[in-house]
Nucleic acid binder design. Structure first.
Lengths: 229, 229
DNA sequence: TTATGTAAGTGTAAAATCTACATTAATAAA
DNA sequence: TTTATTAATGTAGATTTTACACTTACATAA
């Protein structure tokens, strides 16, 4: 009968995580060398199976933590992938999640048994199964998100310069942005605190450091804004 | 062991369909009275279980067809819902899909055994499980989509008036739009054919009918455009 | 101490887009 | 032929977006 629960097929449900990070070399994703068959040794997204007593969001968090030691990372669901043979061992539907993290803040945690490794998004190895497709879709979503949320603060150190922010957005959107227009658009959001302090690494003159003003940000979020860069 | 396939839990995977339609009374969704337990007789989205040899997109199409006779409806995946007790019988993860259809074109098919029924989105019955939430999220997505794709053509008859198109967008966005500005923005997309023919139903003067120019539309889609209404 | 090189910081004018708004036109029905 | 009803149409002002170049601050080297 069409709708009896008992006759319905059960499947494995997996979660795969696309973790974006940013440092001075640009936008990166976190990959691992798969430590079990099939495709053992090949590069892969961080992933695992959903447990019976677990919601998908929790599974994503747990899996990320297992492989990287990372905690309290906000992740967002993206898409369910269900091609019949996407996993050759057994029928497995996978739900992708993505997150943004600050590479420097988390490097310590990442040096673990499962050697997770950062790769530039434009120079990553070929991935197993349909993981390449998952990554491409995640990049699309990330780009879209720049226009409706001021993302990027997760990806930068606590104190950052305008140049760093600019370069982050350029990396995400993969296009050049006009420096002055970018700064005035960001300033018009009024979600940054300009510090007295300067970063002296980048130039003789030094450039002002900013922090992200979380309260004003939360305020902004209530009235959905749009940021056209 | 963490990653053995054999020890991983299997779950039921369902698909639920949010079908939007439009007629002179506004924007509607298609619901059915559930014909099996639990919650038999209550209103529900059209849904069913994924089969072992089926991809999610195909399941969505099959399920819609089973309950409504509708064919060749393009559906889009939205989100996976995984709360532990969302279905009281058994752990079931559900992936929602949404579609837009033209009510008048399809009314005949809908008069079937499973009495599917249209409800205005603002005056629909309470739904089982987490289906209310699914609908709300689908409405959000539909609104978003108006700004990046000229949707709505699926929802209207082949020949339609500007007023119908305007009212459709007003229903989706649930706000009033300025008629002249709307028309000029739509015209600037250059995806409509203005016919010689007029619709004489609505007024003494009659209003020009339009059709949707599919070729120009496909062309437009290549360069992602934005439509701010 | 002075000169030099480097990236930071800053404003504006022109163009494009968006918004608000009211009158005339066409026709059927009375 | 008058009347009533909805369709069709354009523009000026406001706002937003874009393109663009010079000065400033400071460390380093001469």
């Amino acid at each position: 009968m069409l709708n009896s629960y008992s006759s319905a097929d059960k499947v494995l449900l997996a979660v795969d995580c696309i973790i974006f990070g940013f440092d001075n070399d640009g936008l990166k994703i976190l990959l691992i060398q798969r430590d079990f068959e099939p495709e053992k040794g090949k590069w892969s997204l961080i992933g695992g199976f959903l447990k019976r007593d677990e919601v998908l969001d929790a599974a994503a968090t747990r899996i990320l933590n297992t492989y990287t030691g990372l905690n309290d990372i906000y992740m967002e669901q993206l898409h369910a992938y269900s091609e019949i043979d996407r996993d050759p061992v057994e029928r497995t539907i996978s739900v992708s999640y993505f997150a943004l993290i600050n590479i420097e803040n988390h490097n310590a945690e990442l040096i673990q048994n499962y050697h997770a490794e950062w790769f530039p998004i434009n120079d990553a190895p070929n991935l197993i199964f349909d993981h390449n497709e998952m990554v491409q879709n995640a990049i699309k979503r990330l780009r879209y998100k720049t226009s409706v949320k001021p993302i990027g603060f997760e990806l930068l150190p606590e104190k950052f310069t305008m140049r760093q922010l600019l370069e982050l957005y350029e990396a995400i959107l993969s296009k050049e942005l006009d420096k002055r227009n970018f700064i005035s658009k960001i300033n018009s959001l009024e979600i940054l605190n300009k510090l007295e302090e300067k970063d002296m690494q980048s130039s003789r003159k030094g450039s002002y450091l900013y922090t992200f003003n979380k309260e004003k940000y939360e305020e902004k979020l209530l009235n959905n804004f749009v940021l056209n860069l």
